[in-house]
Design a protein around this nucleic acid. Structure first.
Lengths: 246, 246
DNA sequence: TTATACATATCATCCTACAACTGCGCCGGA
DNA sequence: TCCGGCGCAGTTGTAGGATGATATGTATAA
């Protein structure tokens, strides 16, 4: 039985499509943990691809810890708790495509990140943050380079928390933001208020230098609300104004 | 030029070993972002394996967003910030201090999540949360089933925020937590204080029913600090006590 | 009944060949 | 000299067969 893999116009690689198909089947619960997948032979016939392609697809799923292959026996679906690694990919988030929600998450993460950074930052962190700030200020308009510098500024703050998980998460969110910005530019003209943007960053930086968690958090919240508005997103007020004083 | 892959006693699959080798080279900075990897042919000769094995290794790295393959050109190293996915593997949790950092991240996400959920939850959300709570209470000891119910409780709260990004992130962290619990159980005996744990959850639930964001956030922070302590992790006090009153 | 040997199924690896794509240089014409 | 088309070499992508390694079930013999 041959089965067409979503015949989109895209030239996406075959292994990726097979992996995505199996992945959906597993996530949706059609294939319960513990069940055995069809053999490589059967899968290659089912999808109309070579076994080689199937093997690469399985390699991807196995790298994600979603399945386990036992030589001479078969390939089995793993339960979430016995997975060796976990992954979030950008595609999963793009589906909702809701910039407002993305900024909301960003606000949560970065506000706390700023507060933690204010308490824990060392001189080297301040230097790195300052360097990013300077790069940002040098730009005339809000171009690609200044977006880079902007996001670097935020990543450096995350790094200053000393918590690698926070750093990883914020880096990830920043990349999503970058893509959203690209998209937003196409739909509605951005207000290139460079000086406003830089001013907000300066206030965050000053709070970090002062080692004042409360001020850093407040400045960060204000900045993200502002940044959201500049790309045409309005955050719910209740959360935006949340816990600025503790 | 043949090169021996770390000849550990383990019978780990060849593709995994190749992927690990390349991964280390990239992480350590020996291969800068933008540089081209040797061709599949060269790699297969270098490692003394077939090209097929090399391809599977590359497939894994590509799934991690670490490299990018362009047909007819070559395979290139991607910069960390342009990776399309984030991944954390279980081994990393065993490093000292990682669990503490993980709980710190969890505290940030879940505290805000609880506050948002208190504002936005509908009746269906409350029902789902209550169902998880009941399942948890039914258990005598802190067994696998109650851990499932516990994490489900938290995921349902995340879902009640109506923000899919938050839900995805918290689900991700929850899986890490599950694993850290498994690991903690092996090293030090857990205090099976079921009633304490359930009590903390009840207080969160009540705050959600009441629609009180402040109380929900406080209850969640108290719970996570308590949960961390029960697996032998002490969160920094400054953050644990943060902004419980706003 | 039990234990050993065999047959089978399946994944793991290797191999060769070809297709698809890219970049670059060669070559002919204006 | 300049320029554009065209083919060639190199690289990844896909196909398919062959063989080795390993686990599982089965049949046979003691």
């Amino acid at each position: 039985m041959k089965q067409r893999l979503a015949a989109i116009g895209t030239v996406e690689a075959l292994p990726h499509r097979v992996a995505a198909f199996l992945s959906r089947e597993i996530e949706s619960g059609e294939l319960n943990p513990g069940t055995r997948l069809p053999t490589e032979q059967q899968l290659s016939e089912k999808f109309g691809v070579s076994r080689n392609v199937v093997r690469e697809a399985i390699a991807q799923l196995r790298a994600d810890g979603m399945i386990e292959a036992r030589q001479g026996v078969g390939v089995f679906v793993l339960a979430p708790e016995q997975r060796a690694s976990i992954r979030i990919d950008g595609e999963a988030l793009k589906a909702t495509g809701n910039m407002e929600r993305l900024f909301e998450l960003r606000c949560i993460l970065e506000a706390e990140s700023a507060a933690l950074a204010a308490e824990r930052r060392g001189q080297e962190h301040l230097d790195a943050i300052k360097a990013a700030l300077d790069r940002m200020s040098g730009e005339e308009r809000w171009e690609e380079g200044s977006i880079d510098a902007d996001l670097l500024f935020h990543r450096e703050i995350a790094r200053a928390t000393g918590n690698n998980y926070i750093h990883t998460f914020i880096s990830f969110v920043c990349e999503q933001i970058r893509r959203s910005i690209h998209y937003a530019r196409l739909t509605n003209p951005l207000h290139d208020l460079v000086e406003v943007n830089v001013g907000e960053h300066v206030r965050i930086y000053e709070a970090l230098v002062a080692g004042d968690p409360t001020a850093a958090e407040a400045a960060m919240r204000a900045h993200i609300v502002g940044a959201a508005e500049r790309v045409g997103v309005k955050l719910p007020a209740s959360r935006a104004a949340h816990s600025t004083g503790r």
